[in-house]
Design a protein around this nucleic acid. Structure first.
Length: 848
RNA sequence: GCCCGGAUGGUGGAAUUGGUAGACACACGGGACUUAAAAUCCCGAGGACCCGGAAGGGUCCGUGCCGGUUCGAGUCCGGCUCCGGGCACCA
C-alpha cells in the first residue's frame, strides 16, 4: 500500500476478506456470553438512504465493539419485503411485485455490503418468501385456534375513489394519503388479533423496560390508555332494558342531566321509533354513519346532536333524563353511551349550551366559588361533591370509589376498566402480502387451512389494475378450493395480512432463519433472545414495537418464545436532516441548481428570484435535500460516511448534514494514514512493552492520555452510545501524538510510546471505521485480523496522576489554580491554596 | 387542549454525580510551503473593558427569560417564552 489513503481499494479488500472468511458468522456457544444486536430491517424500496446509513452504522459499532469484548454476537439483516410500493410499481409500470422486490433486495444488499456492515448474511431473510410467510400463516392458525384471531364486522376507513380500505396511518386529516379524497366509513368483515387481551400486561411490563427511552414508554402508555371507572345502567323509561354507560367520573353522576349515544349505537334508531323525533333521528344517523370520526365535526370540535324522543332514569337522582345522539360519541370506546355531565365535562358543557339543557354543579371548588351563572367552561378538576344526596361533602376522589361501590351494591352497575387500545385489524385488500390461511365452507363454516398444506402461496395470475377489492379474488384458481373438512366446494379468504404481522416476530426467526419445520428453533431462540439492543427510528415507537411485544407474549403463551419482552434495550435514532432551498415560484431546489454565490445571495435558475436558505428538514426527495449514500461512498468511502454520521451528533438526536463535516471526517482518516506511514520506520527497533520506568514526564503524561482514552472510549460506547465523544477523544489522542512526534520524534523512548498510542488509536477505531483500521493494523505488522483482536484494557498504573491541578474557588469563582503532587495531604493543599496571592487578595475575611 | 422532549460561541456539539462552561470538529482569520493554486502544516479566537512599549497580565459579563436554593447552578426547584415531537372529541 502506498502512502496516500485510498478508501476504495482498502474497502473492497476487506469486504472480500470478511466475505471469504465468513467473519461474522455466529452459532450458539454456551461457553460465551451472547449479545444480540438488531437494527430494524428495511423495506426494500430500491436504494439505501442516509437514515439507513445512520441506523446501520450505529448498530455496527455496537456489534463490532461487543465482538471485540468477547461476546458471541448475533447481528443479522433481512428485508421487510411485503408492502404497498411494490404493488404500486406493478400497477404503474407492469412489473410483478415479486420481481421488483427481488431486484431491489439485490441492489440494496450490495449497497449494505459496501458499507462494511458486519452482518451474518447466512441468516438473511425476506418476509415475501414462502419459507417465511408460511409461518405467518402458521402463527395465524395458532392464534385462530386460541381465539386470538377472529373475524368481525367493523367500520373501516374507506377511500371511495381508490375503492380500498385504508390503514389509520394512511388517513391524513380525514383524507386519503394517495388521492386526497375524503375518507368515509364502511362496514366490512375483517380479521382481528385480540391484542386487547394483553392490554394490561403490555402496560404493566413497560415498567420492566428500563433500557427504553421514556418518550417511547410514555407513547405506549398513552396508546394503551387505561381508564379506571364504572359501568352503570340507566333504565329506559316506558320500556324494558337500559342504557349501560361507562364513566371515569362516577363522582359527578348527580350532575348527569342527559345521556349521549353514538350514531352506531344499536338502540339509536329503535329508541325514536314511534316518536315525533323519528325522522330527525334517521336523518342524523344517515348524515354521520358513513363519515369517518375525523370528519364528523364540520369545524374543529363542533358538537352536534339530536333528541331521540326517549328518556332514561338516572338511578342516583331518580330523575328522567333525555337521550340524545351526538356526533362526538365513539361506538368503539366504552359502551357507545355516555352519561352527560355538562358542568364537569367540556364536551357535555358545549352540547348543553347549544341545546339548552340544564347544567347543575355537583363538584365545588374548595372555596365554593362556582355558580350556575359564572360557569363559562366545565370545571373538570377535583373538588367537593355537592347536591349529591348522601354523598354530598365527600372529596371527588373518594366519591369515585363510593359511588361505584354503591352502584355495585345496588346491582346498578360495577367498577370497570377500559383501554383505548383496540384489537388489531389485520385484513388488507391487497395482493403483496401474506394470504390469510382460512377457507370458508357453507357446511363447515370458517376452517383454517391444514398445517401440512402451508404455505398458501400467492397466485401469479392476478392482474394489477389498482381497482378496488381484493386482488386475490381476481385469480382464476386461487379462491376455488375443496373444504379441508368435508371435501365440498369452498372458497379461500382473499384478503392478505397487514405487513406489520411480518415484522412482529422476524427477530425470533433470525435465531434460526432457515429452519423448515417451525417458525423458529425454540432452543436457539432461548439462547439468543431477548434482543439485547434494538435500534431504529422513533416513528415505530407505537405500532411495530407494540405489535412485537404482543406477538412475543402471545408466542410465549403458545410455549414457543421463552421471554416476556422481545427488546431489552431500545435506541431510537434521530432523523437525518439538511438545509432546504426554496424559490417562491419554483418550489424546492437542489443546492447544485442554484445560481449566484453564498456572498451575493443565491438565485433561482429559472426565474432569477433570490432564494432563501430554508429550514433544516428531514431529508426527502420532494424537498430536494437528499444526499445519496452511494455518491458519498464513491467519493470518500464507507469509513468516512460512517465516521461522519457517528461523529456529527449523538445517535438519539437529529443529525444535520454538513458536506464540510464529511470533508473533515475524511481529512482525519487521511491524516492518520499519513501519520502511520511517516512514523512507522522509527518503530522497527522498539516495542511498546508498557514499561514506563525511565520515561520523561512528558512521555509519562502521553501514556496517561493513551490509557485515559481507552477508558473513555469504552465507557462512551458501552451503554451510553456517545459515539461522538468517543471519536472526539480518539482525535484528541491523535493530536497529542502528533504534537509529541513533532517535539520528540527521534528518541527510542518516544517512538515506543507513540507506537503504543498509534496502535491504540487503530484498535479503538475498529468499530467505527473498520476497513481503514484493519488495513492500518496490518500495515503495523500484525498477523491476526483486527476484528479478532480483543478490546484493549487500560492500565490503572498508567492512569495514575502524579500531579493534580487543584482549582481554588472563592465564593464559587475560580480565583487560583495550584499544581500539587498526587500524594499530598488535605492540609498541604489548603496551606498552598491559602498561600496563593490571587486567592489571598479575594479573601478579606475568613475561609470556609 | 393534554403528554413528552429541547434551547449552550458564527455552526454541529462537549461538560457522565451541583465544582475550571465552550472538549472535538466545521466555518472563519492570520502565517508557512508554492511561480501560483489545490493539498498539507502551524498559529488565533465567547463578549466587553482595563494595565502594559511589547510579550503578557487582569477585571467584569456570559448556557432562552424572570425568580429561588447553595460557598458554588448549563446542571436542582418555582414561574414563563419559543421550537420540535406524540396523542387528539377515549366520557
Amino acid at each position: 500500500m502506498e502512502e496516500r489513503y485510498q478508501a476504495k481499494a482498502i474497502e473492497e479488500k476487506w469486504q472480500r476478506i470478511w466475505e471469504a472468511e465468513q467473519a461474522f458468522k455466529v452459532s450458539e456457544d454456551a461457553a460465551k456470553a451472547k449479545y444480540y444486536v438488531l437494527e430494524m430491517f428495511p423495506y426494500p424500496s430500491g436504494r439505501i438512504h442516509m437514515g439507513h446509513v445512520r441506523n446501520y452504522s450505529i448498530g455496527d459499532v455496537v456489534a463490532r465493539y461487543k465482538r471485540m469484548r468477547g461476546f458471541n454476537t448475533l447481528h443479522p439483516m433481512g428485508w421487510d419485503a411485503f408492502g404497498l410500493p411494490a404493488e404500486n410499481a406493478a400497477i404503474e409500470r407492469g412489473v410483478h411485485p415479486e420481481a421488483w422486490t427481488q431486484e431491489n433486495i439485490l441492489y440494496m444488499k450490495t449497497q449494505l455490503k459496501r458499507m462494511g456492515l458486519s452482518y451474518d448474511w447466512e441468516r438473511e431473510l425476506a418476509t415475501c418468501e414462502p419459507e417465511y410467510y408460511r409461518w405467518n400463516q402458521w402463527i395465524f392458525i395458532q392464534f385462530f385456534k386460541k381465539g386470538l384471531a377472529y373475524k368481525k364486522s367493523s367500520f373501516v376507513n374507506w377511500c371511495p375513489s381508490c375503492e380500498t380500505v385504508l390503514a389509520n396511518e394512511q388517513v391524513i386529516d380525514g383524507r386519503c394519503w394517495r388521492c386526497d379524497s375524503v375518507v368515509t366509513q364502511k362496514e366490512l368483515e375483517q380479521w382481528f388479533f385480540r391484542i386487547t387481551d394483553y392490554a394490561e400486561e403490555l402496560l404493566q411490563d413497560l415498567d420492566k423496560l428500563a433500557g427504553w427511552p421514556d418518550k417511547v414508554l410514555t407513547m405506549q402508555r398513552n396508546w394503551i390508555g387505561k381508564s379506571i371507572g364504572a359501568e352503570i345502567d340507566f333504565p329506559l323509561v316506558g320500556r324494558d332494558g337500559g342504557l349501560r354507560i361507562f364513566t371515569t367520573r362516577p363522582d359527578t353522576i348527580f350532575g348527569a342531566t342527559f345521556v349521549s349515544l353514538a350514531v352506531e349505537h344499536p338502540l339509536a334508531l329503535d329508541l325514536s321509533a314511534g316518536t315525533p323525533q323519528e325522522a330527525a333521528v334517521r336523518t342524523f344517523i344517515d348524515r354521520f354513519k358513513n363519515v369517518s370520526q375525523a370528519n364528523r365535526g364540520a369545524e374543529e370540535g363542533e358538537k352536534e346532536g339530536v333528541f331521540t324522543g326517549a328518556y332514561c332514569r338516572n338511578p342516583f337522582t331518580e330523575k328522567n333524563i333525555p337521550i340524545y345522539l351526538a356526533n362526538f360519541v365513539l361506538m368503539e370506546y366504552g359502551t357507545g353511551a355516555v352519561m352527560a355531565v355538562p358542568a364537569h365535562d367540556q364536551r357535555d358543557f358545549e352540547f348543553a349550551k347549544k341545546y339548552q339543557l340544564p347544567i347543575p354543579i355537583v363538584i365545588q371548588t374548595h372555596d365554593h366559588k362556582l355558580t350556575a351563572d359564572n360557569l363559562t367552561e366545565a370545571y373538570v378538576d377535583d373538588g367537593v361533591m355537592v347536591d349529591s344526596g348522601i354523598f354530598s361533602g365527600l372529596a371527588s376522589a373518594a366519591g369515585k370509589e363510593k359511588i361505584a361501590a354503591y352502584a355495585e351494591e345496588k346491582n346498578w352497575g360495577k367498577k370497570a376498566i377500559r383501554y383505548r387500545l383496540r384489537d388489531w385489524g389485520v385484513s388488507r385488500q391487497r395482493y403483496w402480502g401474506t394470504p390469510i390461511p382460512i377457507i370458508y365452507c357453507d357446511r363447515c363454516g370458517t376452517v383454517p387451512v391444514p398445517e401440512d398444506q402451508l404455505p398458501v402461496k400467492l397466485p401469479d395470475d392476478v392482474p394489477f389494475t389498482g381497482k378496488g377489492g381484493s386482488p386475490l379474488s381476481e385469480s382464476k384458481f386461487f379462491s376455488q378450493v375443496a373444504c379441508p373438512t368435508c371435501g365440498g366446494p369452498a372458497r379461500r379468504e382473499t384478503d392478505t395480512m397487514d405487513t406489520f404481522v411480518d415484522s412482529s416476530w422476524y427477530f425470533l426467526r433470525f435465531t434460526s432463519a432457515h429452519v423448515a419445520t417451525a417458525p423458529f428453533d425454540i432452543e436457539k431462540a432461548r439462547y439468543w433472545m431477548a434482543v439485547d439492543q434494538y435500534i431504529g427510528g422513533v416513528e415505530h415507537a407505537v405500532l411495530h414495537l407494540l405489535y412485537s411485544r404482543f406477538f412475543t407474549k402471545a408466542l410465549r403463551d403458545l410455549d414457543l418464545a421463552k421471554v416476556d419482552e422481545p427488546f431489552a434495550n431500545l435506541l431510537t435514532q434521530g432523523m437525518v436532516s439538511k438545509e432546504t432551498y426554496r424559490c417562491s415560484e419554483h418550489s424546492w431546489l437542489f443546492p447544485s441548481e442554484l445560481v449566484g454565490s453564498e456572498k451575493e445571495g443565491w438565485r433561482c435558475p429559472q426565474c432569477g428570484r433570490p432564494v432563501q436558505k430554508g429550514r433544516v428538514e428531514k431529508m426527502s426527495k420532494r424537498k430536494k435535500n437528499i444526499v445519496d449514500p452511494e455518491d458519498l461512498i464513491n467519493l470518500y468511502g464507507a469509513d468516512t460516511a460512517r465516521l461522519f454520521t457517528l461523529f456529527a451528533a449523538p445517535p438519539e438526536k437529529d443529525l444535520e448534514w454538513s458536506d464540510q463535516g464529511v470533508e473533515g471526517a475524511y481529512r482525519f482518516l487521511s491524516r492518520l494514514w499519513r501519520f502511520v506511514f511517516q512514523h512507522r520506520p522509527l518503530w522497527t527497533n522498539v516495542s511498546a512493552n508498557g514499561d514506563a520506568s525511565g520515561l520523561s514526564a512528558e512521555l509519562r503524561e502521553l501514556r496517561r492520555t493513551i490509557h485515559r482514552t481507552i477508558k473513555k472510549v469504552g465507557d462512551d460506547i458501552d451503554g451510553r452510545f456517545h459515539f461522538n465523544t468517543a471519536i472526539a477523544a480518539i482525535m484528541e489522542l491523535f493530536n497529542a501524538l502528533s504534537a509529541a512526534a513533532q517535539s520528540d520524534g527521534q528518541s527510542n523512548a518516544a517512538a515506543a510510546v507513540i507506537q503504543e498510542g498509534t496502535e491504540t488509536i487503530v484498535v479503538l477505531l475498529a468499530p467505527f471505521v473498520p476497513h481503514v483500521a484493519n488495513e492500518l493494523w496490518e500495515e503495523l505488522g500484525h498477523e491476526e485480523r483486527l476484528d479478532q483482536v480483543p478490546w484493549p484494557s487500560y492500565s490503572e498504573e498508567a492512569l495514575e496522576e502524579e500531579k493534580l491541578l487543584i482549582v481554588v474557588q472563592v465564593n464559587g469563582k475560580v480565583r487560583g489554580k495550584i499544581t500539587v503532587p498526587a500524594d499530598v495531604t488535605q492540609e498541604y493543599i489548603e496551606t498552598n491554596a491559602l498561600a496563593d496571592p490571587k486567592v489571598l487578595s479575594f479573601l478579606d475575611g475568613k475561609n470556609v
